[in-house]
Computed example of a mutant assay.
Amino acid sequence: MGQYWMVVNLDKSQTFGGWGKLGEFLFSFPKCLETSIRAQPKFPDCDAIVRPLKPGELIRKPRRSIPGLRVPQTAAPSSRVTALVNLPADIIGEIYSHLYLLLDVLCLSVTCQVLWEIGRPYIYCLIATIATSSDSWTGDRILCVGDYLQNKDIPENVLTPEERVELTDDEESTLYDYPFHKVEGKEFNMNDMWFKGRGDDRYDLMFYDRGLSAARHHFLAYTPPPPPLPVDPTVLRNLSRRQYVRESALLELKAKYAEVKSHRGEGILQNVGFGEVLMTRICLSSNPSASMLYDGPIHRGAWAGDRFDIVSSSECFEDTTWSDVSEEVLKDLEEIWRSEYRHALVVPKVYS
């Protein structure tokens, strides 16, 4: 039947799910692993996401009014709002601290100008927390575990003593069997987070009935920009061992095989990135079954369970304690790819 594999994050108890046999996905590898460890740009400050108050400003919307969103200076606020805003600031802050959903915080904040100013930091905090922690595996312990892995074959450095008891307590189950939480590995989308934690459609109806949709787009029309293209080449860093692989070295290897095509007509290394590089070093199993032509010890990855990120090369080269292992790592990757695409590397003889 063959061995099945899945990439797991030990620190977050997460996985991208089972991807099947190693030889079936390694050569058409999804980019979610590489994306998950790539350093993200600095998150904008509060004013860039949640608009600051402009005294006396009113929202103008063509269709539906937004009750209580802005109180004109000539209008008298309701007694309930007056009683609330007259409370000490620490008491109002205590109320906000018990609101865990972005929609709830917004509903309270748009009732008047005073609460909007008080609520802005709480709105920002929720957005920043969700946006910056949604899918990042930067600095976490990662490995690709095979379902033939026996607990006795897990290296000592992979699990803490507490994890070894929790994850491998049952002698009949393996690390592959542990119920890791499945994540999709998609990029952060602000429009998906408004009802995070809600399992009830009535909140979606309430959102529009109260006219808060206009408030959301007026004050919070913010979409995180795509990560800027790095000025310097990037490096894949192994934070546990203080080693790195240079993107420039990977590009040189890809250029070497630029003219070699697979049976599908594409370059055999055309789509290879740091995700594939990492996968050749983090697999862990007791059995070498990988459904690949390569017969090397890929199932005992030297980096299994280590911590990683992808950053600008300038952040690495300035520190002399880091060591460049590009040649060693890419030599292994080249051997794996040459084994898989050996038919494409054979030049047919020409007979006269």
Score class of each variant (00 low, 15 high):
289 S>M: 02
339 S>L: 01
34 E>R: 10
203 Y>P: 00
243 Q>R: 13
115 L>P: 10
222 Y>H: 10
230 P>C: 05
290 A>M: 15
350 V>Q: 14
16 F>C: 06
280 T>N: 08
46 C>N: 04
307 R>Q: 15
108 L>K: 03
293 L>D: 13
152 K>L: 03
249 A>I: 00
350 V>N: 10
346 V>Y: 15
127 I>H: 12
143 L>D: 02
260 V>H: 15
298 I>K: 13
189 N>M: 14
310 I>G: 01
283 C>M: 15
153 D>L: 01
113 Q>Y: 02
235 V>I: 02
19 W>Y: 12
344 A>F: 04
7 V>S: 12
21 K>I: 06
323 S>W: 01
230 P>W: 04
36 S>D: 09
225 P>D: 09
72 P>F: 08
257 Y>L: 05
71 V>R: 13
171 E>N: 05
282 I>P: 07
168 T>Q: 13
219 F>R: 07
179 P>Q: 14
317 F>R: 02
50 V>Q: 06
183 V>S: 01
198 R>P: 00
302 A>M: 13
322 W>N: 08
319 D>L: 00
109 S>L: 04
308 F>C: 10
155 P>E: 02
229 L>P: 01
284 L>E: 04
280 T>K: 03
320 T>W: 03
24 E>G: 15
13 S>N: 01
250 L>S: 02
42 K>I: 09
180 F>S: 04
153 D>I: 00
152 K>T: 06
141 R>I: 00
198 R>M: 06
150 Q>D: 13
207 F>Q: 03
192 D>E: 11
153 D>A: 02
324 D>F: 14
163 E>A: 10
135 D>H: 12
3 Q>E: 15
159 L>H: 14
67 P>G: 04
67 P>E: 08
333 L>D: 02
199 G>N: 04
82 T>K: 15
156 E>M: 13
290 A>Q: 11
318 E>I: 06
54 K>L: 14
265 G>L: 11
2 G>Q: 12
174 T>F: 04
153 D>N: 13
348 P>L: 11
122 Y>I: 05
176 Y>N: 03
341 Y>V: 03
160 T>A: 05
292 M>V: 01
